[in-house]
Design a binder for these strands. Structure first.
Lengths: 189, 189
DNA sequence: GCAGCTACCTAACACCTTTAGGCAAGCCCG
DNA sequence: CGGGCTTGCCTAAAGGTGTTAGGTAGCTGC
């Protein structure tokens, strides 16, 4: 009986691939076991339970996304940074819809605090520093940016823009122009 | 053996309540049967399957939300209309998180076309008419508004703003001010 | 008051999750 | 090089959900 060489890491990566192929909520311990040609119970030496699997995939996705974003931000500022950052989100979600859905999983506070989510927050603030907003407006703007990014990507992925012209890529680009203009002329309370 | 008086409507309404209590993805045919103190199989005379149940809840939520929005829009225009519309979304999502999640369910094209989703789209366009954008900018703006509304509400509901000041209600209000300012000074391509 | 419809039932099967306990593969040491 | 130990993967079993097939009893209408 040859050993399959399972580890939590390999399972997590395979789970992420599975998520991209069939959707995050179709990721199941059983499907993962099938993929490794192994009995279901065998995975429970490496994963506490199926929620644990989902959390690991979420953390993987958050980290990948933060890595890409950090790379895109390097050497950029102002509108350049804003647009590069935004494209990372949209491109990642389109390339890896399952992982992107995983990244939206609600994590318990300690897990979230230890996740790459905090890097995302820091990067968003870094971009806004180029626009020179006073606190607490910067926080309001952080939330607005996060909303637009997540909202747009999630509506597009859900097929919300499917049967209407124009190309979603164009609306995306115009939305980013608009956000840039808005941040440069941020209205007083 | 007394009859329970099941109908698709009653099941859908109870399913919506269940969704608000335990989360939309915990809505299960079994849980619904327990709630009516009836065997699971009995529901299959009224619902095709569990996907059918979820779809019905989604359609109910979309209709309720559209009704509320229509009421809020009556007699308003411009920034007033924008703000009233936005508050309907956020309030509904906070009152009925399960229903709101249901409203985000991906529907097949025919179902979507027959749903209250088209009323939402028409109302969004009606609000924008107050800002006098040329096509295709109006479409870009429709998508941006939808993204902000859905994105903000969904981040807030997911707990994204939980452990940071200031009050999410204030950021929401400032985001709407910002959107209004943006629409009044919509940047040329 | 009976016939028929149909609302709800039992039974059965398939699939997913999770735990308990067993066997043997492969490493570690003498 | 061989025996012991760890542990990776197994079988077995129990509980939950989804779904279908076919039966029985309550309500409706004549």
């Amino acid at each position: 009986m040859a050993r399959a060489g399972l580890t939590a890491e390999r399972l997590t990566r395979a789970g992420a691939e599975l998520a991209d192929e069939v959707g995050f909520d179709q990721v199941t311990v059983s499907a993962l076991a099938r993929r490794f040609d192994v009995r279901v119970a065998s995975l429970y030496s490496h994963l506490r339970n199926s929620q644990d699997l989902r959390t690991r995939i979420a953390l993987l996705a958050l980290a990948e996304l933060a890595d890409r974003a950090a790379e895109a931000l390097a050497g950029r500022s102002g509108k350049d940074a804003l647009i590069a950052f935004a494209h990372v989100y949209r491109d990642y979600a389109r390339e890896h819809p399952g992982r992107y859905a995983a990244a939206r999983l609600r994590l318990d506070p300690e897990t979230a605090a230890a996740s790459a989510g905090v890097r995302h927050a820091r990067m968003t603030r870094a971009i806004l520093r180029g626009y020179d907003l006073p606190e607490p407006d910067e926080t309001h703007a952080v939330r607005l940016l996060g909303s637009v990014f997540h909202g747009y990507v999630s509506l597009e992925l859900a097929g919300g823009f499917d049967h209407s012209a124009p190309d979603p890529a164009e609306s995306w680009s115009r939305a980013l122009d608009a956000l840039d203009a808005l941040l440069r002329n941020w209205p007083a309370p």
